[in-house]
Design a protein around this nucleic acid. Structure first.
Length: 419
RNA sequence: GUGGGCGUAGCUCAGCUGGUAGAGCUCCUGGUUGUGGUCCAGGCGGUCGUGGGUUCGAGUCCCAUCGCUCACCCCA
């Protein structure tokens, strides 16, 4: 069998590539407007970065990482998520000595060994942003506003925002006990996997779709109702800022994110256009992450959004491209050779120009030019060449003019509206 | 990992109760002397996912296997 792209991976072909380029450029604009600088971290990290950063109770670390030993015996892991590596880089380069907050963004591929389905791949790309060194709840709101702005500029349809608070690890402890006690009372009605999960992270059960689990969770105590005072105050400030900015949201006490590092603010954008994997982007605050990677006690807040899911939400309509400005139809190889400098000059001037392969008939070249959406075709056959001329045909009107070969470039760039 | 659906030309698909493969689109070449997008004609292109089995004979039935896909779980 001929090789295929590995399970869970895909090739992005030019039509979709144009959509992707637009997504990335919109993201770059919004990031720049908010003062974020771009970072590029390695595609793989020491495995420790994710074990300590993301947490051993998460599915990502327990069963989804592409981990391997290199020839030197180091355990390395293909980046399964973007925040831990950026936190590592922040710490490694002493960025806590820079004016805070330090704002960083990235666009990078993520790798997770999961069963592929609609909107879920083993390699997917994310645009993400992280801000380190500020506890200000208004920064949380700014992050959320940024992400909302990206979706708005791209016209992503049917986007909704859910938000909640995880409190902090210390204040969360008593609640965790209370939730566990509640679940113990319903233990006999829960499926096996739910019983196993509840001891590792009982909050995770809020996210399960199993009917029995949902029934048991319906009257469970809510973390949002049991926040410590500081976390509650923080949460209220975030919501107030969102209201003032006119960003619609819905507080969802059952919102749980699958990464252990989140504290206080957590949020998730969903798109109803998507299938079961409706999450299009999300994030939150992670005040203990940098320290857990051996760095200073520095708070942080960030988000990630999936490029493939944005593309899906946009309808998957391929961008047909904008055609080309001119097509060079020169059947004779020798004449084509002479026109090489002219061809280069047209492209240097910013025009989109294609040249037909010598050896095919003129009719085939015209067909080709038409298929490419060419606005003009430059014909230099033996007849024109003998007189030092070129025929330039306007493909919309069908008008043709003859000009000296030396004036092809100036004629095309001068006549009509330049690109 | 578990369950459902599907695997026929590059793409989208037809192939009734088994009889040795088709269409549309794309692409290529023509429709007289160098000119496109419409139209017409022709052409390229498939070991019918793979391996077994039943049968005189299987794309069509049976088994296995691989792959794709959707869902659970989880997440972007």
């Amino acid at each position: 069998m001929a090789p295929r792209a590995p399970k869970g991976t895909r090739d992005v072909l030019p039509a979709e590539g144009r959509v992707r380029a637009r997504i990335e450029s919109v993201a770059a604009e919004v990031m720049a407007a908010n003062g974020f600088g771009r970072v590029i971290t390695p595609t793989f990290e020491e495995t420790e970065v994710f074990v300590r950063g993301v947490g051993t109770a998460t599915d990502i670390v327990r069963k989804e990482m592409y981990t391997f030993d290199d020839r030197g015996g180091r355990s390395l892991t293909l980046r399964p998520e973007g925040t831990a590596p950026v936190a590592r880089a922040y710490s490694e380069h002493g960025m806590h000595k820079l004016p805070q907050p330090v704002k960083l963004w990235y666009v990078a591929p993520m790798f997770r060994y999961e069963a592929p389905q609609s909107g879920r791949f083993r390699e997917h790309w994310q645009v993400g942003a992280e801000a380190f060194g500020s506890e200000d709840p208004l920064l949380d709101a700014e992050m959320i506003a940024m992400l909302a702005e990206i979706y708005a500029r791209l016209d992503v349809p049917e986007v909704r925002l859910r938000i909640s608070s995880m409190g902090d690890p210390v204040g969360r402890a008593p609640y965790r006990e209370a939730l566990l006690a509640h679940l113990e009372r319903h233990a006999d009605s829960l499926p096996a996997d739910a019983r196993g999960r509840m001891h590792e992270n009982p909050l995770r059960l809020f996210d399960m779709k199993d009917r029995a689990v949902q029934a048991a969770m319906a009257d469970a105590p809510r973390l949002l109702d049991n926040l410590d005072d500081a976390s509650r105050e923080h949460h209220e400030r975030v919501l107030e800022a969102l209201r003032l900015m006119g960003i619609p949201f819905e507080v969802d006490p059952t919102l749980v994110r699958g990464l252990d590092y989140y504290t206080r603010t957590v949020f998730e954008f969903t798109c109803d256009r998507l299938g079961a994997q409706s999450g299009i982007g999300g994030g939150g605050r992670y005040d203990g992450l940098v320290a857990s990677l051996g760095g200073p006690e520095v708070p942080g807040v960030g988000f990630g959004t999936g490029i493939e899911r944005i593309t899906l939400a946009l309808g998957g309509d391929a961008d047909p491209g904008a055609g080309i400005d001119a097509y060079l139809a020169v059947p004779d190889a020798g004449i084509r050779l002479e026109l090489m400098p002219m061809l280069r000059d047209l492209r240097r001037a910013g025009l989109r120009v294609e040249a037909g392969t010598a050896g095919r008939g003129l009719k085939a070249m015209m067909r080709h030019a038409s298929g490419l959406g060419a606005r003009r075709v430059v014909i230099v056959g033996p007849r024109e060449h003998a007189e030092g001329l070129a025929t330039i045909r306007d493909m919309e009107t069908g008008d043709q003019v003859e000009v000296p070969v030396g004036e092809i470039a100036s004629h095309i760039m001068g006549g009509g509206d330049p690109a």
